[in-house]
Design a protein around this nucleic acid. Sequence first.
DNA 1: GAAACTTTTGCACACGCTTGCAAGAGCGAG
DNA 2: CTCGCTCTTGCAAGCGTGTGCAAAAGTTTC
Lengths: 333, 333
Amino acid sequence: MSQKIFVSAKEVADLAGVSRSAVSRTFTPGASVSKETRRRVMEAAEALGYHVNHLARGLMRNESGIVCLIVSEMDTPYRASLIRAISRHLQNASKIAMLINTDRSDRSVDEALKLAISYRADASIVLSGMPDKSITDLCVKSGQRLVLINRDEERQGALMINLHDREAARRGFIAFQRAGCRSFAFANSDVGTPSLMAREEGFRAAGQEFGLDVTVERFGPTRYQSGVVLAQRLLTREVRPDAIFCANDLLACGVMDTARHQFKLAVPCDLCVIGFDDIEQSSWSSYQLTTFAQPVDRIAEEAVSWLSQPMTDSGQFCRMTADLVWRESVKGG
Amino acid sequence: MSQKIFVSAKEVADLAGVSRSAVSRTFTPGASVSKETRRRVMEAAEALGYHVNHLARGLMRNESGIVCLIVSEMDTPYRASLIRAISRHLQNASKIAMLINTDRSDRSVDEALKLAISYRADASIVLSGMPDKSITDLCVKSGQRLVLINRDEERQGALMINLHDREAARRGFIAFQRAGCRSFAFANSDVGTPSLMAREEGFRAAGQEFGLDVTVERFGPTRYQSGVVLAQRLLTREVRPDAIFCANDLLACGVMDTARHQFKLAVPCDLCVIGFDDIEQSSWSSYQLTTFAQPVDRIAEEAVSWLSQPMTDSGQFCRMTADLVWRESVKGG
DNA sequence: GAAACTTTTGCACACGCTTGCAAGAGCGAG
DNA sequence: CTCGCTCTTGCAAGCGTGTGCAAAAGTTTC
């Protein structure tokens, strides 16, 4: 191990000819220091390359400034853009994001939260998986803030951010109807994430409401390749759907590509497609996918601003609506 | 501010009826504790929900376990997958990733490194921008490890990971020639990142080597939309290129889409395209892009494993080769 | 049973910082 | 000059750990 030799407040104090407290106060907003002392301290700090040790500060203040982001498959477009938005908002709030990768297993979300506790994170934001209740209770009991995004299960003391998934799916169904579609399908992954299931149920319920059949197909993880398989299954049915609602844009891209290249179908003429998330690729001219946009920036803003609000004992729900972005994958926008 | 009340080693010690040192040793691998004491400590810790305070431990050991990832535009596919790979390798090495977003300005890379120092990070990995020499010197002097990925500028005491960009570009040129192309172009962004410029120069040099003209166009950030503009400029030239090497896959996607949809060109018949990075989208059937693959996982592995190796004074270079992934965007792979 | 040795344990200090407290410095009013 | 006031400053305690040191406990050997 390399010997680290960071410069400490003591050294700055010695060089500036003041006490350690003085340099501490210089770097503490709102503390009482004279103009002159501050100048000398800053000068000495600059010369030595001094930077306050946030670890020690966190230890004293009982507030580390660290916020853990717990996420799997973080290279997925939607996840990546959410991470980006959150990290930006955190930095604006003078906090810092710690990234915990939970790719390995579902249990690893619990491990992640323990890590968050170990680093005395001020808060944790969970984007993937669902932690065990005993762990979230421990977090909350320890005074950590906890935000669950698209998890849709109640946890005491946490903020739960969700979308109106069911209602969005219903709006999607109606859009298909307006476009003159007659045979409706829902393409889902088989991971069973609450928000994905809510979309499926919403779409199904809409079918029931209008007395129309909905075929549902589920397969694999929520990725492009699953979309390929789903399209192959759906488009070889005896009655071929002319409308497919995909649980997410990645699936939709796979579905569209397969419909076009393998089945030689034209979108939207032969097949209408709607997705969910509004990832960047959906706007590319190969797709021009009509989709529901996740309000990524608002989610990030809501999550971060909640972190600095006074704690309430009960859990708090925050439901946002996903706006439908009209492009070319549905007839007659 | 919420009052945080984490349980400390003292409380565990009291409950277990041992000294505080005992519990400290229980959680220190290789320390001397009897089987019996360890059991009682673990029991008490479990009951109270105790977790070692990594902040305090870092303070004592002078080793925080934190590694800063300094990156802008982290929702870009290549960046996102690199971040994912690095975070996974870090966790395997019992370290934790701190994510610093430098979207705002180039100066903010320096700010990011100062933040890394403040949190006494064991190391920083720079994926975007180029920090000022005075800052990197301070990092190294403080005993921090520093990894620069695709930055291609020497820094004392740092590990610099780069690809053989020029050579790859040359191989690309030859592939175009074999495919029977006659009019060569290079599509670049105008951000001037060293690795992007190296690819451009390599391609240019190859043209010179074979006595063939290369037209170069630069525009905007390194994104899809810039690819659209670049295609529009290149494909309206009096002599239309039939081979375009794109500095990266995102540009290539924009170029391909525009060539096909706006100019009604067939790829690869009318136009051959090569990209760089091998992002996921390149394998989607709408693109089937022939491209040079960044060895993302090897980069991450190399970076992380270097962190635990003894420090050398001089900088260290690590050059990897990008393998050409043959798909359908060049004739006759 | 005692000596020689190993293993375990508690004490106390150190890490770098914040902050309450009381003493000091400056200053205008009387 | 002295009193009372405000603004600064240093002292020292404390945050939750790790670890060297010496004492205590346990184990082996003769």
